[in-house]
Design a protein around this nucleic acid. Structure first.
Length: 207
DNA sequence: CAGTCCCA
DNA sequence: TATA
């Protein structure tokens, strides 16, 4: 009766534990270097300027940013330092080659840092000009309650408790699905020095 | 155009 | 607080 209870929608792929502990530690070290060069900033909602609860930065030739004045967009430089974003770590490029099924490399890797009380409302990733390429998402640190819906905001949703090292892929018919983070479970990982979660999302921006 | 804000 |  109900739609598939266990199966994921076409194009959605959940790869638990894709990175083992050593690989996760290497990824965190790489991200620490990215953050040293491109400091975390607080993204703000268009028009209202309301701060989001995550802090973010990017690596790659383009980075996703948002502010009160100009809204959501990709740009080649950090909004506060004006410098180009640092390169995407090799391990993430290798992941993209493995799971994306897309010939060209990702242009953007958005780095979102979630403090224990940070959330991300249901939204679509649709600021790219290339929807044939999937979005590839990596979880590091504390577990989170991740919600995924369908391509319409009112579609029913399912929740997953994601753990450090897990990978989620949104491609094909699921490229534009709504998704968000309802809560962080502090203290559920020892990967990071303090409680919190890092999410990395790889995107192809231009065809 | 707005939006991942908020909140029901 | 720095964390990343």
């Amino acid at each position: 009766m109900a739609t598939a209870e266990r199966g994921l929608a076409p194009g959605l792929r959940y790869v638990p534990d894709r990175f083992d502990r050593a690989a996760q530690e290497a990824l965190v070290a790489a991200i620490r270097q990215v953050v040293a060069d491109a400091p975390l900033f607080v993204p703000r909602m268009p028009k209202t300027g309301k701060p989001m609860s995550v802090r973010m930065t990017n690596c790659g030739s383009l980075g996703w940013v948002t502010d009160k004045e100009n809204g959501y967009r990709y740009q080649p430089t950090h909004p506060e330092t004006g410098r180009p974003w640092p390169a995407i770590p090799e391990a993430l490029l290798a992941l993209w080659d493995e799971v994306s099924g897309f010939a060209k490399p990702p242009e953007a890797c958005l780095v979102n840092f979630y403090d224990p009380d940070a959330k991300m409302g249901l939204h679509q990733d649709r600021d790219e000009n290339e929807f044939s390429a999937p979005v590839v998402s990596v979880s590091l640190g504390d577990q989170c309650l991740f919600r995924v819906g369908g391509v319409s905001r009112s579609d029913p949703t399912r929740s997953f408790r994601l753990s450090s090292g897990d990978v989620f892929v949104f491609g094909g018919e699921s490229r534009l699905i709504f998704h968000g983070v309802d809560r962080i479970y502090p203290g559920t990982s020892t990967l990071l020095k303090n409680a919190g979660r890092i999410n990395l999302t790889l995107r192809r921006v231009n065809p």
